[in-house]
Amino acid sequence: MDFFDKIQDYINGSLSVEDRKAFEAELQTNEDLAEILENYSVIDQVLDYLIQEDVRKQLDKIPKPQPTYTLEELLEMFAVSEVYEDMVEATYRGQQKQAEVQLIVLQPKNKINCQTELKFELEMPVPFKLNLSILHQKENIVLEQEIAANTKYFVVNVSKLKPGRYYWHLAPADSEIEELQAICRIFFVRKDLEPTQLS
């Protein structure tokens, strides 16, 4: 019999009387076996680790329930950008000013939760080409879209965006047009995933 294969059985007390006697006799003469038995609690943890690591490889082949974001990733995805938050603030301050042509966005409102598309509605069309960008704290500009002049309604597809906190920024495409105040607001994709620590 290979005594090394029988250590756990010996500890469990599941060896037959004969085998147990043989094992104990071997312990008297086989110093290695005795020392292994003595250190078995640690050896056992190492063996457990080796098996668990192997099983993990197999389990990793099974997809996890969607979505597969870790808390760390979610914290990053929903991170607040101070720069963009300032831009949002500026939008509200800017709207107090009186100008000849004003860019007033009726929809979407600030901080909406959105999964497919952002539906825009301007109070009145403006005679300039506009540029809409979608911003994220980490990746900066994630999406850009040009909006033709004199448009009142338009839609921006955000279905490919990962969950997170985003900002949309609407401004004249020609940066030299200063009459129009840019508009910036917050929106969320899958707000239900926002880690609670943040709010």
Binding site: Q52, K64, P65, Y69, D192, E194
Partner: peptide
């Protein structure tokens, strides 16, 4: 957060299977 909770439970379940095996 229900999604996070499900992921956490799934992780416990996977670790449980590793220990079982």
């Amino acid at each position: 957060n229900p999604q996070l909770k499900e992921l956490e439970i799934d992780e416990i379940y996977r670790n449980g299977i590793m220990q079982l095996v």
